[in-house]
Write a protein that binds this DNA or RNA. Structure first.
Lengths: 231, 231
DNA sequence: CGTTCCTGTGACAAGGACGTAACATCTGTA
DNA sequence: TACAGATGTTACGTCCTTGTCACAGGAACG
């Protein structure tokens, strides 16, 4: 799960553009990273690529229905833990039971109050996200404290620049996961920044050097043709 | 007053369950302790029991009205210091004057923006807490007495201006934590004030000079690309 | 073994972030 | 009004960070 301690990522799946806009705007205003999908296929793709922290899912969708997406997500172990909030129009209310049966974690009826939806999103996030106070990430002997922006490796404080810090944060949020260069550019550099993807390589190198500045093995793994991973 | 320097307690008085939920979620998400009351009697009881740091009070309530509760609180000396933020529907707006007359410290009209309400809650707390908390904050050899507004470093009294004092207070409430320039502007300057974020840098410089006016290391840490921290 | 593609890394120029002095305002006070 | 203290803004210098390139080393593959 892509838990950026600062900005959890929300995936909004909604085919109606106006609705999508509203959700996008409000969620972003609340400080979330937001990605949107207009149909089921795009949604499933983005779940892979973006590893969102939570999904807001419209019931009625062209192609694969919301309920089907939800079922698929909840059967796969990698995605089972991502909370899903279902949206449905009042007339579909009868299906509420079925919605929750498929594993949706919460259920909101249109027309919904934006405030209420925000509250429910936060609620689900709070329920699911590591309850660790002060957001401390750990992998092996590497400890990253998001609040103080400090990183240590076996008692030695590490000195690393802003970009390396963000890179390492991303890796430590999900140790073992392989991130493509594009995904890293998205998360670490920002969605609409253009930089050469080789730049990632250079920064990986810098991060490696920083992590080993007091000795120890290189914990970063290069996955040829795919990207990089921690451990 | 229930002074936990980490988590101030907010009492929410609101009869409408959905509204109460929204407030509860949002305030809790912001890190407050929250207690809720559905009517006036419960509210007055909880004020005794929980000694909240601030009260968010709906105007329309079954039984004792919000305005009456506010009047009662503001006449008793034990509770006079607790800030009250009134909520009222637009149609009741005409009563704004009367609301403030009874001693409410701020006034928000429904439908309100959650962000705005949070800002106002924080504003009121910031206004009152430093004075009431009367705590002595300490970090290393630096001692800050909120009540007397005095700061010493290893027996030497330090001379610093109001802004530097507030800055230092913020840092000392959570040593080590990195504050972004925007967060500092929020807390130290106030939410709706517009000042250039570089101004923070200048005041950090002034605070540094003040802290070292009798020698000693600079305890403030610059975190490039992120902000500043104490220690 | 040779070719081709992918990755690691040193060098470097450009840009950005930060520290600070100087200046103009503003406020309260005598 | 004159004055002192405090504040916000600007400008400029310095240092750090960063993106890109070029080239070398290696892996996959026939």
């Amino acid at each position: 799960m892509a838990v950026s301690s600062e900005h959890p990522t929300v995936l909004v799946v909604e085919d109606e553009p106006a609705q999508r806009e509203v959700l996008y705007y409000n969620l972003q205003a609340e400080g979330f990273e937001v990605v949107t999908a207009a149909d089921g296929d795009e949604a499933l793709l983005l779940v892979e690529e973006e590893a969102p922290d939570i999904i807001v899912l419209d019931w009625m969708l062209p192609g694969i229905s919301g309920i089907e997406i939800c079922r698929q997500l909840k059967t796969r172990s990698e995605t089972r833990g991502i909370p899903v909030i279902m949206l449905s129009a009042r007339s579909e209310e009868v299906d509420r039971v079925r919605g929750l049966e498929t594993g949706a974690d919460d259920y909101v009826i249109k027309p919904y109050s934006v405030l209420e939806l925000m509250a429910r999103v936060r609620n689900q996030l709070r329920r699911v996200r590591p309850a660790t106070v002060g957001q401390r990430l750990q992998y092996d002997d590497i400890v990253l404290d998001a609040e103080t922006h400090r990183v240590t490796r076996g008692d030695h404080p590490l000195k690393l620049g802003p970009t390396e810090f963000r890179l390492l944060t991303t890796f430590m949020e999900k140790p073992g996961r392989v991130w493509s260069r594009e995904q890293l550019l998205d998360r670490v550099w920002g969605r609409d920044i253009y930089v050469d993807s080789r730049t990632v390589d250079v920064h990986i190198g810098r991060l490696r050097k920083a992590l080993c500045q007091h000795g120890g093995d290189d914990p970063l793994r290069t996955v040829r043709g795919a990207g990089y991973a921690l451990g």
